[in-house]
């Protein structure tokens, strides 16, 4: 997976890179000047280091927006069992649905784990019957409805 030649070797991250990254994790919009001051280095160094890490696709500094900012009020985790069709093919079809924001092939009792965000429960019937229902190879769905999100801290994602 990490064979892409454009990728920066993590060992090439030095201490300054790691310190800059650590600041950006907690405040991605800290200005170059603020970071420079905190680390006692030049602002131009900060800007060059960030650009280098971003161009190497090692990091991307973004605004993550809350589910509610998109009007999503219902969050589901659905375990999917597959039959008569390769799990990956089913997963590809599921990943293409706009309501699905996470689609993982997994080991264990289920074959696929989905994360689904809906505006409200009235969207559920269309999603289940008209969208998931049209995908072949699904044997069963085991949903869990998110009631309370205690922690949600993902700062890792495949960057394209």
């Amino acid at each position: 997976m990490a064979t892409d030649s454009t990728m920066l070797d993590p060992s090439k991250f030095d201490d300054i890179d790691r310190k800059i990254l650590s600041i950006l994790k907690s405040d991605g919009r800290a200005t170059n000047q603020e970071i420079a001051r905190a680390l006692k280095i030049a602002a131009a160094t900060v800007s060059a280091r960030i650009r280098r890490m971003e161009e190497a696709k090692a990091i991307r500094v973004v605004a993550a927006a809350d589910f509610s900012a998109f009007g999503f009020n219902v969050l589901l985790s659905i375990g999917v069992e597959v039959q008569n069709r390769p799990a990956e093919a089913v997963a590809e079809d599921l990943a293409a649905l706009s309501e699905v924001f996470g689609c993982h092939l997994v080991t264990g009792a289920k074959d696929i784990d989905l994360l689904v965000a809906l505006h409200d429960f009235s969207d559920l019937s269309d999603f289940l019957l008209n969208k998931i229902g049209k995908i072949h190879g699904i044997r069963s769905l085991s949903p869990a409805i998110a009631v309370d999100i205690v922690k949600y801290d993902f700062d890792v994602s495949v960057l394209k």
């Binding site: 973004v62 605004a63 993550a64 927006a65 809350d66 589910f67 998109f70 999503f72 990956e88 997963a91 590809e92 599921l94 990943a95 699905v100 924001f101 996470g102 689609c103 993982h104 092939l105 997994v106 080991t107 264990g108 009792a109 289920k110 784990d113 994360l115 965000a117 999100i149 205690v150 922690k151 949600y152 801290d153 993902f154 700062d155 890792v156 994602s157 495949v158």
Partner: peptide, 19 residues
């Protein structure tokens, strides 16, 4: 019950819960 992700087909890290 533990299940290990073997492949991620989609994950939108721009949607999150800001806790």
């Amino acid at each position: 019950e533990t299940s290990i992700v073997v492949k991620t087909l989609k994950y939108n890290s721009r949607i999150a819960k800001i806790v």
